[in-house]
Nucleic acid binder design. Structure first.
Length: 132
DNA sequence: GCCAACGTTGGC
DNA sequence: GCCAACGTTGGC
C-alpha cells in the first residue's frame, strides 16, 4: 500500500464535488514527474485530496480504483480513477504543516508546484492522527 | 546540448 | 494581482 497526495484547485474541482461525484477520472496532469507518480499508483492505494490556491489544506482521502491508463487525446499523458473515501474531520492547513517540523521533508513543502506526489507512511499516519 | 524566453502553478 | 519557482520550448 502506497500513499499519495493529489492537488486540486477548489474553484476547478472541489472536495465537495468529488464527494458528490463518487468515482471520477483524475486527468489533466501535464507534468512528467506527476505523471510518473500516477503510473506508480496501485489499486487500493490512498491519496490525500489537497485544496490548492483557496483553502490550502488537506480535506479528504480518495482510493485508487483504476490504475493509470492513457488519454486517447494526449498519448504521452493519462489518468487514474479515484473514489472519494473519507473526509477529514479536521482539515490540515498548509500553514499548520509549515509550522510543524515533522513536515520538514514533505514534498508538498519542498516542491510546491508538484500536483501529484508520494506521502511517506509516517507522515500519512501523523496527519491521520491529528485530522480524524 | 545549452540557455534564454516564456508559460504555469500556487502561495502570499 | 503580484511574483518566485520551475518546467518546457525553441533558437543556435
Amino acid at each position: 500500500m502506497n500513499y499519495w497526495l493529489l492537488k486540486s484547485e477548489p474553484a476547478v474541482w472541489s472536495w465537495q464535488q468529488q464527494c458528490a461525484a463518487g468515482t471520477t477520472h483524475w486527468d489533466g496532469v501535464r507534468n512528467y514527474q506527476a505523471r510518473n507518480y500516477m503510473q506508480a499508483m496501485r489499486l487500493g492505494d490512498l491519496a490525500f485530496f489537497y485544496h490548492s490556491n483557496e483553502g490550502k489544506e488537506i480535506v479528504g482521502i480518495v482510493t485508487l480504483v483504476r490504475e493509470y491508463y492513457p488519454d486517447p487525446e494526449q498519448p504521452d499523458f493519462g489518468m487514474v480513477d479515484v473514489a472519494a473515501a473519507q473526509s477529514l474531520k479536521t482539515p490540515i492547513t498548509l500553514a499548520q504543516m509549515k509550522a510543524d517540523s515533522r513536515f520538514d521533508n514533505f514534498l508538498l513543502l519542498r516542491q510546491p508546484r508538484l500536483s501529484v506526489m508520494p506521502v511517506e507512511k509516517d507522515v500519512w499516519e501523523y496527519i491521520l492522527s491529528i485530522a480524524l
